[in-house]
Simulated assay, not measured.
Amino acid sequence: MGLRETKKERTREALAAAAMALFTERGYEATTVEDIAAAAEVSPRTFFRYYPAKEDVVSEIFHSGGFDGIVDARPPDEPVIATLRSATFTVLQSCADSPAPALAVLRMVTSRPELSTRLSDAQRARTAALTASVIARLGPDHDPLAARLITSWTLATLDAVLLHWETSDGRLDLLEIGKRAFDQLEPALHCVLGTSCVLGT
Rank of each mutant, 00 (worst) to 15 (best):
T6P: 00
T110C: 01
E55N: 01
R180T: 04
V134A: 07
G200E: 08
R85Y: 04
A21I: 03
E78N: 12
A181K: 03
V58F: 12
A156D: 15
R74Q: 14
L119H: 02
A18E: 00
L15P: 09
E29I: 03
E25N: 11
E55L: 06
A96G: 03
E186Y: 05
L149K: 07
F182W: 07
P76A: 13
D173I: 05
R49F: 12
A129G: 01
L189W: 04
G65M: 06
A146R: 09
T195G: 12
G178Y: 02
R85F: 09
R26T: 13
L106Y: 15
L22G: 11
V80K: 02
E114Y: 09
F67T: 14
D35C: 05
F182N: 00
A129Y: 01
C95P: 00
V91M: 00
L15C: 14
D121A: 06
T46P: 01
C191Y: 05
F47C: 03
D35I: 09
T110A: 14
A53R: 13
F47H: 07
I81L: 02
A188I: 00
L15F: 08
T131P: 01
A38S: 04
V33L: 08
V161S: 05
T157A: 06
P79K: 10
L138A: 00
A136H: 10
S120L: 15
L185K: 05
R137P: 13
D77A: 15
A87I: 04
A181I: 07
D159T: 07
A125H: 14
T11A: 11
R26G: 03
L149Y: 04
A40G: 01
T157K: 06
D68H: 09
S94Y: 08
L163P: 08
H164F: 12
T110G: 03
G194R: 11
C95D: 11
T195P: 01
V105W: 03
D72T: 09
T154W: 03
D183M: 00
A18G: 01
E114N: 12
F182M: 06
Q93H: 14
E55V: 03
A147N: 04
L130M: 10
L92H: 05
E41M: 14
V105T: 02
E78R: 15
V198D: 15
S59V: 14
V80S: 08
D121P: 13
T24D: 15
V109D: 03
